[in-house]
Design a protein around this nucleic acid. Structure first.
Lengths: 222, 222
DNA sequence: ACCTGAACACCGTTCAAGT
DNA sequence: ACCTGAACACCGTTCAAGT
């Protein structure tokens, strides 16, 4: 009260500072001591407001995730609308690159997809899928989108692979298909790849007619 | 020389001990000090043989990866063979659960797929795909398999989601489809999901006829 | 060529003590 | 109710010194 050189410390202000630290320098830069320095307080004050580092990260992930915004499907057919849901989620996650790492580290990748699930269920229903079939469709899209984002983010921060695709496909390993070798030596256009694969997956799963999902494994599913 | 209470320290023996530590207690347990204790040497000796922690992890990932074993496609059609390649890679990676985390942390997920690329290229050719189309196919499968493994491994070590799918789909949020709600509240059968999605993706990409991969721009794909 | 301990600059967390 | 510094038990890495 007397000095007021700083904003009064609250749970919110701690989370703000933490989020800013992560945004600017990545998750590794978020140490309790550095955060305290940024806030101009003693390290131990943070423990009073948000608990330890684990709790802090939990709260941070939670807050960022709820702020991600609505999923608004667009397009006329279910196929287009599902692709738009997937693209929209991907775009949102790419807008918070460090969040993806944070969420992954904390074993919460599944949570990243929860807000999109309802939207997907609606599209599955619109496409005539119900029950377990619809559930499988939702899960398939979920795994593919989240998985793609994880791989994409990962490769973005790994500039020099060793040995990378470029070297692997320089020699005559391509079975007399130089165009293929050239294509594989080039960096991936991940956005295009994302749309292509999601579209292919959706098309196949939504139009799969007949006796349910393709049989699998040793006996015969369902 | 005089005491010889321990095996002579070599680069190999250091890597052995490190791999064992990771296998038994996870990557977080691999600290230089603990490793030294395990080996019965001074911490600094490790630096002479393998360099710092980064170099150690690099070497560890490298060694484990080369020991993963061959990819042996089985099945009569390209579709079956591609699915078998994907399943085989997934199985190998699941046999080294900590490796996946290690590789991901180090931004090397792409490397996990390199040994499988050649096999996939052969199948793409056998299916009549060439050049950029074949490359896109390989990449699509790559992203999907690696992405799936990442998501799968991630959800395995996140026992209690909060709020999880179970809670989300308990209420009447399923649009009068109780079977769907029940299915989404249940844990995922990831193996089945993996096979279904890979099969769907492969089928769609291998049989896509016409003018090349689906258009992707802002306007309207194909 | 190989190994050592001491030292440095960091961590997260606890706890008794202040106001 | 809120904040503090001291202390504890850890980290990875460097470096001069040993043999």
């Amino acid at each position: 009260m007397p000095s007021r050189a700083r904003v009064t410390l609250t749970r919110e202000s701690v989370l703000d500072a933490a989020a800013e630290l992560v945004r600017r320098h990545g998750p590794a830069a978020l140490t309790m001591r550095r955060l305290a320095a940024e806030l101009g307080t003693a390290v131990t004050s943070i423990y009073w407001h948000v608990g330890g580092r684990e709790a802090l990260l939990d709260a941070l992930v939670e807050r960022t995730m709820t702020g991600l915004g609505e999923i608004r499907p667009s397009g006329r057919t279910p196929e287009h609308r599902v692709v738009s849901i997937a693209s929209s989620l991907r775009r949102q996650l790419r807008g918070h690159p460090h969040l993806v790492a944070l969420v992954h580290e904390r074993g919460l990748t599944e949570r990243m997809f929860l807000p999109a699930q309802q939207a997907l269920v609606r599209e599955a229903h619109a496409a005539g899928l119900r029950g377990a079939r619809a559930a499988e469709f939702v899960r398939a899209v979920q795994f593919q989108v989240v998985g793609h984002v994880l791989v994409e983010r990962n490769r973005e921060r790994a500039p020099a692979q060793n040995p990378g695709e470029a070297e692997l496909w320089r020699a005559g390993t391509a079975g007399d298909d130089p165009a293929l070798a050239r294509a594989l030596a080039r960096p991936v256009d991940t956005e295009r790849l994302f749309e292509t694969t999601v579209r292919a997956l959706v098309r196949c799963l939504l139009t799969a007619r007949g006796t349910g999902p393709a049989g699998h494994g040793t006996v015969r599913g369902r």
